[in-house]
């Protein structure tokens, strides 16, 4: 509550001393020069024209891949694509502690064609969001009982200043087979969106 008040009260017939002027100006200037706060500004006085772009939030979303990406079968580790194309990766440069609001929304198909899953078969896909190697969200396991499928995965985390790397990763595995070769899953469309909410 940076209200300031003058410090001197000169009257007529007082000897003119420069401190009568200077002291009060200095008192007020001391607050004006870097000490003002919410009580000095009216309500709703600040709008977008007064705040630099990127002060409150920034949004990033790329790259967008342009053709379906076939994931390897039975990945033993989490993968971010087929080894050539990265499906979703965002690496913003952030200058202050922030909350990352992350969404990956995408769709895939199991290349089943007209048939439907045979008895005793089950291929599985899991998806997760990762920030600097730390998992922040994990989808339920999706099976190939649905040939075409989609999901939207949400996650958030707190990061400090720097360049956090946000990726979407996938893992495929077969829960049970029937003597048939594993099916590959194609990630057809997807978008990774990262909203940086700044402190």
């Amino acid at each position: 509550m940076s209200f300031r008040y003058k410090t001197t009260f000169p009257s007529d017939d007082d000897i003119a001393d420069p401190s009568d002027w200077v002291d009060s100006n200095a008192e007020l200037a001391g607050e004006f020069n870097g000490g003002m706060d919410r009580d000095n500004l009216p309500e709703s006085a600040v709008d977008g024209t007064h705040i630099s772009d990127g002060t409150v939030a920034e949004v990033f979303s790329d790259p967008l891949f342009t053709a379906s990406v076939n994931l390897p079968t039975k990945t033993t580790e989490w993968v971010d694509g087929d080894g050539t194309t990265v499906i979703g990766r965002v690496a913003p440069t952030i200058d202050v502690d922030s909350v990352l609001d992350i969404v990956w929304s995408g769709t895939w198909n199991w290349n089943i064609g007209g048939g439907y899953p045979l008895a005793g078969e089950s291929e599985l896909l899991a998806i997760r969001l990762v920030v600097d190697g730390v998992e922040v969200a994990r989808s339920p396991v999706h099976s190939d009982s649905r040939d075409y499928d989609s999901t939207t995965l949400y996650g958030n985390t707190v990061v400090g200043p720097g360049s956090p790397v946000v990726t979407v990763e996938f893992r495929t595995y077969r829960a049970s087979g029937n003597g048939r070769a594993e099916r590959t899953v194609s990630i057809d469309y997807g978008e990774l969106i990262v909203e940086v909410l700044k402190r």
Binding site: S61, L64, S105, R146, S150, T152, E191
Partner: peptide, 25 residues
């Protein structure tokens, strides 16, 4: 942008019932 498309499927025996959630920038 192409990232907004969603798909699902059904056939003679499988009535697909579900929910979809699309988020796009």
């Amino acid at each position: 942008a192409r990232s907004t498309r969603r798909e699902s499927n059904g056939n003679e025996l499988i009535i697909m019932h579900g929910s979809m959630d699309i988020v796009a920038r």
